[in-house]
Structures are given as structure tokens and as C-alpha cells.
Amino acid sequence: MGEYIHVFCLPLAYIWARITLIVIALTELRALPPSASQTVDWTRFIPHI
């Protein structure tokens, strides 16, 4: 009987966790600061040979 709980509860917990993480990520995109859309000048940070 105990193994049936794992067979049904663990996949449901995994699916719930994945959906929760996706929802959190998408809702956090609404609160980005204006500096998040600025273009980075990578030539200042990556040295060229």
C-alpha cells in the first residue's frame, strides 16, 4: 500500500513544483527594473586578442 502512495504522490508533487516554478518566473518578469532592458557593451568586458 505504501508504494502506491509514492507512485501517485511523487509525480503529482513534481508536476506541482514545476508549474509553481514557471509561474514564479513569469510573474517576476513583470517587476524587472528599467536597467534590465539596457544593451550590454560586451567589448568592454571581454578582452580581445
Results as ranks from 00 to 15, higher is better:
Cys9Trp: 10
Ala36Gly: 03
Ile24Ala: 14
Ile22Met: 08
Thr27Met: 11
Ile19Trp: 04
Val7Arg: 12
Gly2Ile: 04
Ile22Glu: 13
Trp42Tyr: 11
Glu28Cys: 14
Ala36Met: 05
Met1Ala: 13
Ile5Cys: 04
Ile49Gln: 10
Ile19Ala: 07
Ala25Glu: 09
Leu29Asp: 12
Ser37Cys: 01
Leu32Met: 14
Glu3Phe: 07
Ser37Asn: 13
Thr39Asn: 11
Leu12Ile: 14
Trp16Glu: 04
Pro11Lys: 09
Arg44His: 10
Trp16Cys: 05
Val23Asp: 10
Ile15Glu: 01
Ile46Val: 13
Ile19Phe: 03
Ser35Asp: 11
Val7Thr: 09
Arg18Cys: 12
Pro47Ser: 06
Ala31Glu: 09
Glu3Met: 10
Ala17Val: 03
Phe45Gly: 07
Glu28Ile: 02
Met1Phe: 07
Phe8His: 04
Ile49Met: 02
Ala25Arg: 03
Thr20Ser: 15
Trp42His: 05
Val40Ile: 15
Ala13Phe: 02
Leu10Glu: 05
Ala36Ser: 15
Ala25Leu: 06
Ser37Pro: 00
Phe8Ser: 11
Asp41Glu: 07
Ile49Phe: 12
Ile15Asn: 01
Ile24Arg: 14
Phe45Gln: 07
Trp42Gln: 07
Ser35Tyr: 01
His48Lys: 11
Phe8Ile: 12
Arg18Asn: 01
Cys9Tyr: 12
Cys9Asp: 11
Ile5Asn: 02
